[in-house]
């Protein structure tokens, strides 16, 4: 395995009196998709938010591209090359699609070739380019949210449940876009509840339970072992 682009060692995060992360150890290799799986409420979203500095780790270390970012302010983490797609999409609904994208291209003007590629994977963004983002449908908002992270080449993408609550046709679009991104050699840490998508995209996998990573290995290994799935997540991929 190549040097990890992101490494978490014993990360603990408290939110108010709750100990959400209780010593997360996680390695995300350069290139490829690492799936972060687990039941609801085990700390997957908190892990991503802690990496971004939106929640502060009170213990442990987070290393990104060889630098310790445990105490780095969120904007500096983002500018160091992490594209974050939050679970709630976090689009700016009063701004147009164009303005949302321009804001995400923080290092300069939007690269036209990159934009053409995004229009090809998410055609509605071209159609509604000058419309207010608040007027988009749920699926289109999710496309915008992901496209915003992809508007610039990032060292790492953190994507939180991109297919949650979407129609099957839109899920296929999302999966296609992520597959394209993966084919470009991107490093992605993806939280996903849709096992079909996880199985299709994932190279490596970490399963969380009760604020810790309880298993990590190849996605193929997990997807082929129904008993392991049952033990780690209380359900089998084959059943879904």
């Amino acid at each position: 395995m190549s040097d990890p682009i992101l490494s978490l060692q014993g990360v603990c995060t408290n939110i108010a009196q709750y100990h959400i992360l209780q010593g997360v150890d996680l390695q995300v290799p350069k290139g490829g998709v690492t799936m972060l799986l687990g039941r609801n409420g085990v700390g997957k979203t908190t892990t991503l938010r802690t990496i971004m500095g939106l929640w502060r780790a009170h213990q442990g270390s987070i290393s990104f591209d060889g630098q310790d970012i445990s105490a780095t302010p969120t904007p500096a983490i983002a500018r160091s090359g992490i594209g974050f797609v939050p679970e709630d999409m976090g689009i700016f609904s009063d701004l147009t699609v164009e303005e949302n994208m321009a804001l995400a291209a923080a290092s300069g003007p939007i690269n036209p070739a990159r934009l053409d590629w995004l229009f090809s994977v998410f055609p509605p963004l071209k159609t509604f380019w000058r419309s207010e983002a608040g007027n988009l449908s749920g699926g289109q908002k999710q496309m915008l949210s992901i496209a915003r992270a992809m508007i610039e080449d990032r060292l790492l993408y953190l994507i939180d449940e991109p297919t949650k609550g979407l129609a099957p046709a839109i899920i296929a679009t999302m999966a296609g876009a992520l597959r394209d991104l993966k084919a470009q050699g991107a490093s992605i840490l993806l939280v996903e509840q849709n096992f079909a998508v996880a199985k299709m995209l994932g190279d490596t996998c970490a399963v969380m339970d009760d604020g810790r990573v309880v298993w990590s290995g190849e996605m193929k290994e997990l997807s082929e072992d129904a008993a392991l799935q049952e033990r780690l997540m209380g359900l089998s991929m084959e059943a879904t």
Partner: peptide, 23 residues
């Protein structure tokens, strides 16, 4: 662009931080 960032911050300051803007 300054005005757009300001509007983005008004709507969702956490998100603005997460895409690289110092609120």
């Amino acid at each position: 662009p300054f005005g757009r960032v300001l509007q983005a911050i008004r709507e969702n300051d956490f998100r603005a931080e997460a895409i690289g803007y110092r609120v």
